[in-house]
């Protein structure tokens, strides 16, 4: 390197010219994207607002960060590297139910947890969707015959998509979420399900043996969930 040459000094007139040239030559591409070409001469899209909203809903789903049991491990893997649910517009877990659109129920629901899950579901804003992950949310799975296990999430909250498996692989969950997006985009509503277990005020319950027994322990105004195990599937 010659010593006369000044370091760190460029010919700025040259730089400006190059930049301007580059901009001017690329101008057409900058404002005429491939998408624009696909639309033809008009920059407008004509669609129904409902349809547009459904497309938006399906394409930007905020999931509830909700871990219950074994399936939540596979759910974490679905969110994380390799499977990366984010690629499918559905990978932002929100810690608060008030910011979430979709609840993945990943695991066994037991008697003590069902009222709380119902409460979390109630706290989510409409429109909300539920993906039941794993056999436990379908029927109680391997624990179905237990004394403490709810025979499926659908006994408590409505479920849009069931993903079977114990636990389902991350690919299966991704497929389930994709199917949910498809349904949302098509504007299909969740099926109407009969939920046997609801929260009720204790005072409103019909008086029977078990209510009498618990009358001293539970306030009239307390919310309770009553399990009729004998009627469960």
């Amino acid at each position: 390197m010659s010593s006369e040459r000044e370091l760190f000094r460029t010919d700025d007139s040259q730089v400006l010219t190059e930049t301007r040239d580059a901009r001017m030559s690329g101008q057409g591409d900058r404002f005429n994207s491939k998408l624009r070409e696909a639309f033809g001469s008009s920059p407008f899209i004509l669609t129904k607002f409902d349809k547009f909203m459904n497309w938006v809903r399906g394409s930007s789903m905020f999931m509830l960060q909700f871990g219950i049991a074994c399936c939540s491990i596979e759910m974490m893997h679905t969110y994380a590297v390799k499977h990366d649910l984010d690629r499918f517009h559905a990978g932002v877990p929100r810690a608060s139910p008030r910011q979430a659109d979709v609840m993945i129920v990943p695991g066994t629901i037991v008697s003590k947890f069902a009222p709380r899950m119902k409460r979390v579901y109630d706290q989510m804003p409409e429109p909300k969707f539920v993906v039941g992950m794993g056999s436990c949310t379908i029927s109680g799975g391997p624990f179905q015959e237990g004394y403490n296990v709810i025979k499926g999430a659908e006994e408590v909250i409505p479920v849009d998509i069931h993903v079977p498996g114990c636990p389902p692989r991350p690919e299966a969950l991704v497929y389930g979420v994709a199917k949910l997006q498809e349904r949302i985009a098509n504007g299909e509503a969740a099926p109407v399900t009969v939920k046997p277990y609801e929260l009720e005020q204790f005072g409103d319950l019909e008086r029977d043996e078990i209510v009498d027994e618990l009358a001293s322990e539970i306030d009239e105004e307390d919310l309770v969930m009553r399990y009729n195990w004998a009627d469960s599937p």
Partner: peptide, 15 residues
């Protein structure tokens, strides 16, 4: 002698 089919009641008050 536990009867698994007996109904049970769970309150939400701790929540």
């Amino acid at each position: 002698d536990y009867d698994q089919d007996r109904p049970q009641m769970v309150p939400l008050r701790e929540n």
